[in-house]
Amino acid sequence: MTALLEVEDLRIAYGKIEAVKGISFKVEAGEVVTLIGTNGAGKTTTLRTISGLLKPVGGQIKFNGRSLRKVPAHQIVSLGLAHSPEGRHIFPRMTIEDNLLLGAFLRNDREGIAKDVQRAYDLFPILGERRRQAAGTLSGGEQQMLAMGRALMSQPKLLMLDEPSMGLSPIMMQKIMATIAELKAQGTTILLVEQNAQAALSLADHGHVMEIGKVVLSGSGQDLLHDESVRKAYLGED
């Protein structure tokens, strides 16, 4: 059986500078896979390339057995791949509800969309309370909820989350991580990029550690969590 997402020897450059230097990993359906690593390791670059916003210089990305090489960015989501970008990138001058509806931009099933909007409000009640408010007025943590809710609105086969806990208070971070655990329990397949290695590895079935454009270590979430070099470099132990 082929994996849902297969990344093979992927290389990505900004001009002449190679930011991702041949990485490979897989995400199986139903799994949570995490990419962790230092600042500038190339995690965001990798996700943006999977979503078609950047074009790779080499390697393969296959989703559901199909190469994404020739698929333009705006068609990726219709294949079942949703991306909640680093820095949240909600649409600040649109209402919370319109942000969610944009997540369902290509769907035509009105009733299903309404149901999923309600589901997002159940998952994050604060969004429902403020549905008519401009999204730019939300706090950082609430914007993160909106970004995740919006990504779920496309009913993705794979949800990519880029640093959902970035810049959040410890309480808000816990809340977001609990939500990811809940999504995992519901069977959502997730590719999670995180600085918070402890939280990410605890959740993940598999993890990959990236350093300056390469995957330097891979293993199960638990193995990496207990790996000595990982503990030193990412979990603040010495």
């Binding site: 990726i76 970008p85 990138h89 649409f91 944009l102 931009f105 496309s154």
Partner: peptide, 23 residues
């Protein structure tokens, strides 16, 4: 729908593409 896609493109073109908007 196109109008909403237009607003999204004006506010954040890359993210609009992630939503499926043909910018």
């Amino acid at each position: 729908r196109t109008g909403r896609g237009m607003q999204a493109t004006a506010q954040d073109p890359d993210t609009a593409k992630l939503m499926g908007v043909n910018t």
